[in-house]
């Protein structure tokens, strides 16, 4: 049978058996696709029927899914959401730098740096212990109350600062665990080549550690992105605050839904991206994976 397909050059021509196998596999693929589609449609229809036919549904729709109020509030909420994104982007960069510096400070061995190490440890312990909302109040209302020179007065900046303090402590711990997860033999190999402590860290330990902590960092950033809404308590016109204003005018909760939709629109792609990175890292760890 194979001899029929073998050319003198030894070039591979798929056998009838293989072609048939592939045809059958394709057919199976189409079949499972249609089964999945049919069961999903059926499920959605049933749930929709159950919800809309329930006695409370008209009230729920009126309070949360009022299309008119949604379109009325959406432009303002979207405008406010831009401020959330700005706070998020700026805070994220500062948090990364702060977190890395604190993690490095905690790893310093020289007795000269003992105070710095103590400070870094105290910082992570304290700021990981305080609820973020409490920090927002402390920084947002407490700092201006001091009436010191040079303290920013913008609520968005103060709120951002509170987020930086809180998340910086978390991110520092993520970096530190990444650094500690690198096997000591890597450091020994680097030092035995004559690299100094700092060079070993910079060229050998950190590049490996950073690669390892990207997925957990992205997780932290997904939640940072949501927590920008906590700044609302200080009064800047971000998404939640705008939704609140619209809600207060009409006692209808649909504007909150508009804000929620915007936050979801940003976190879902981020979550999928994190999954994608984690899956890729997993494939790489597997034997024969790409480097």
């Amino acid at each position: 049978m194979t001899s029929l397909h073998k050319r003198p050059s030894g070039e591979w021509v798929k056998s009838e058996r293989q072609l048939d196998r592939e045809r059958r596999r394709r057919r199976q693929g189409v079949r499972s696709g249609s089964v999945a589609a049919a069961s999903t449609i059926l499920f959605v229809v049933l749930v929709a029927l159950a919800v809309t036919s329930s006695p409370g549904w008209p009230r729920v729709r009126e309070t949360f899914f009022d299309w008119e109020r949604f379109s009325a509030a959406f432009p303002d909420v979207l405008g406010g959401f831009w401020l959330n994104i700005q706070i998020f982007l700026v805070a994220e960069v500062v948090i990364l730098v702060l977190g890395l510096l604190v993690a490095l400070a905690r790893g310093l061995r020289s007795p000269l740096f003992f105070p710095l190490r103590m400070l870094a440890t105290a910082y992570t312990d304290v700021f990981r212990g305080i609820p973020t909302i409490l920090l927002v109040y402390l920084v947002g209302f407490g700092l201006p109350a001091l009436e010191l020179q040079g303290v920013p007065s913008s609520p968005a900046v103060l709120g951002g600062l509170a987020l930086v303090l809180s998340y910086g402590a978390y991110v520092a711990e993520v970096f530190r665990s990444g650094i500690e997860s690198i096997h000591p033999s890597q450091r020994a190999a680097a030092r035995s080549l004559g690299l100094s402590q700092a060079q070993a860290l910079r060229f050998v330990i950190l590049p490996q550690a950073v690669r390892r902590v990207v997925p957990p960092l992205l997780n932290d950033f997904a939640s940072l992105q949501k927590d920008t809404a906590l700044v609302a308590v200080l009064g800047p016109l971000e998404a939640l605050r705008q939704a609140q204003i619209h809600q207060a005018e009409t006692f209808n909760y649909t504007p909150y839904l508009a804000a929620a939709v915007l936050f979801i629109a940003l976190t879902v792609p981020m979550a999928r991206f994190t999954d994608h990175l984690a899956a890729r890292a997993e494939r790489r760890r597997a034997p024969g994976g790409a480097p």
Partner: peptide, 19 residues
């Protein structure tokens, strides 16, 4: 560091830098 510049070492577990 000066000493290690002049003494090379090879380990049982290779310890190449994987990245």
């Amino acid at each position: 560091d000066e000493v290690r510049k002049r003494i090379g070492m090879v380990f049982q577990s290779y310890n190449l830098f994987p990245h």
